[in-house]
Amino acid sequence: ATNIVGKVKWYNSTKNAGFIEQDNGGKDVFVHKSAVDAAGLHSLEEGQDVIFDLEEKQGKAYAVNLRIK
């Protein structure tokens, strides 16, 4: 899926990971530091509006192509 709108639920820069809550009510999506880095960002803030694509690896959904809304 592409161009999904959501809000950062939480992001821990020590653990280099967090979750994004989908505005469409879907399951929360894992976001890794690699996606944050690829977006040219240093970190994510709780409640921040984002747009992202979903990629599945080994049955788990990940946020990729992250951008700030």
Rank of each mutant, 00 (worst) to 15 (best):
F19N: 02
K9D: 01
E55K: 11
I20Q: 01
E46R: 15
F19R: 08
S13H: 12
K69E: 10
V5N: 13
V29S: 02
D28L: 14
K57A: 10
V31D: 00
A35E: 09
D28Y: 11
N16A: 12
K57P: 03
D37S: 12
V36A: 03
N3T: 05
D37I: 15
S13F: 10
G25S: 08
V29G: 01
A1V: 12
N65K: 06
F30Q: 05
V8N: 01
A38R: 10
R67F: 04
N12S: 13
T2Q: 12
G47P: 01
L54E: 02
K27Q: 11
K15W: 14
D53V: 03
K57W: 12
G6V: 02
A61D: 06
F30V: 05
F19W: 14
W10I: 05
T2G: 06
L54N: 01
K27T: 09
Y62T: 07
V5P: 13
T2V: 13
K33L: 06
G59F: 05
D23S: 15
V29D: 00
N3K: 05
R67P: 02
H42D: 12
I68P: 08
D49C: 15
G59S: 06
E55I: 14
L54P: 00
V31P: 01
K15I: 13
S13R: 13
L44Y: 00
K57E: 07
V64Q: 04
K7H: 09
D49H: 15
V36Q: 01
E46G: 11
T14V: 12
K69L: 14
V29N: 00
V8M: 03
D53Y: 02
Y11E: 01
V50A: 02
G40A: 05
V31A: 02
N12P: 02
V5Y: 13
I4A: 06
I51T: 08
L41I: 10
G40P: 02
V5I: 12
G25W: 06
G18L: 05
N3A: 08
K9A: 03
R67N: 04
W10Y: 08
Y62P: 01
K57V: 11
A61H: 12
I20R: 00
E21T: 15
N16C: 13
S34Y: 09
I68C: 07
V29K: 01
S43F: 12
V36Y: 02
G25I: 06
T14D: 11
F19S: 05
K15C: 12
V8E: 00
S13P: 14
Q22I: 13
W10M: 05
G40I: 03
K27C: 10
K33A: 09
D37F: 14
N3H: 08
D28F: 10
N65L: 02
D49S: 14
N3Y: 06
N24E: 08
A38L: 09
Y62L: 05
A61K: 14
I68W: 06
F19G: 03
V36I: 11
G6P: 00
E46T: 15
N65M: 03
K60R: 14
I68T: 09
Q48G: 04
V36C: 03
I4Y: 07
L41T: 03
V50S: 00
D49R: 15
G47D: 04
I51P: 00
G40R: 07
I4W: 06
G6L: 02
L41C: 06
A39C: 04
A35Y: 04
N12C: 11
E55F: 14
A17N: 09
Q58H: 14
A17T: 10
K9S: 03
G59E: 05
K69T: 12
D49L: 15
V31L: 07
L54S: 03
E56L: 13
I4S: 06
E56A: 08
D49P: 14
I68F: 10
Y11L: 10
N24W: 09
N16H: 13
A17G: 15
S34D: 09
D37L: 15
L41E: 04
E45G: 08
T2N: 10
G6I: 03
G26L: 09
S43C: 11
G18A: 03
A61G: 08
H42G: 11
I4P: 01
D23N: 14
Q58Y: 14
K69H: 12
V8L: 04
G18S: 01
A1P: 10
V29P: 01
G18I: 04
S43K: 12
A35S: 09
G59K: 05
A61L: 14
A1R: 14
G25H: 07
V31H: 00
V64I: 11
Y62A: 05
K60W: 11
D23H: 14
H32L: 07
E45T: 13
G26C: 09
H32R: 07
A17M: 15
V64G: 03
N12L: 08
V31Y: 03
G47W: 04
Q22V: 14
K57L: 09
K27I: 10
A63Y: 01
E45H: 14
L54F: 05
F30M: 07
K15A: 10
A63D: 02
A39R: 02
I68L: 13
